[in-house]
């Protein structure tokens, strides 16, 4: 019984550590801005018929869009275009992908989220694509 309590306590501590650790990373909106503009916008402008300014959606809309993790109307995952593998695939042609090649996937995603939330229509500083 004692050991079960000990285990539960330990798991609680561990999970708390996990959640605190996850929560401790505050998205770097400036890094997110560079990635959004140099990778997302650059590709959208060249291949997807136009870029999407952060200020075209509200914070809530961005939040739900990012949570849904659906890119190109659900054809693929949004996180795929933020991940290290994707960055590695374009780093020879894209300086932002090259510069941020070692940033952990989750951090990069949080960075972009911080930028679009800040630049949303109702955000602290509505932002354009460029």
């Amino acid at each position: 019984m004692k050991s079960r309590q000990l285990l539960l306590t330990a798991l609680t501590i561990g999970l708390l550590g996990l959640s605190c650790g996850a929560g401790a990373y505050d998205g770097d909106w400036k890094r997110g801005r560079v990635y959004y503009r140099s990778v997302c916008t650059a590709c959208h402008a060249a291949q997807a018929g136009g870029s999407i300014a952060p200020s075209t959606m509200t914070k809530a809309q961005w939040d739900s869009y990012l949570q849904a993790d659906k890119h190109a109307k659900g054809k693929d995952s949004l996180k795929q275009y933020v991940g290290k593998a994707y960055r590695a695939s374009i780093r020879s042609q894209n300086k932002a992908a090259e510069k941020f090649s070692d940033v952990p996937d989750d951090d990069m995603f949080e960075d972009i989220k911080a930028f679009v939330i800040k630049g949303a229509k109702d955000g602290d500083a509505p932002a354009s694509c460029s």
Partner: peptide
């Protein structure tokens, strides 16, 4: 498991 859990949480932090 206890050790792993604590270390995992700590490591991330």
């Amino acid at each position: 498991a206890l050790l792993a859990a604590v270390l995992l949480g700590g490591a991330i932090q």
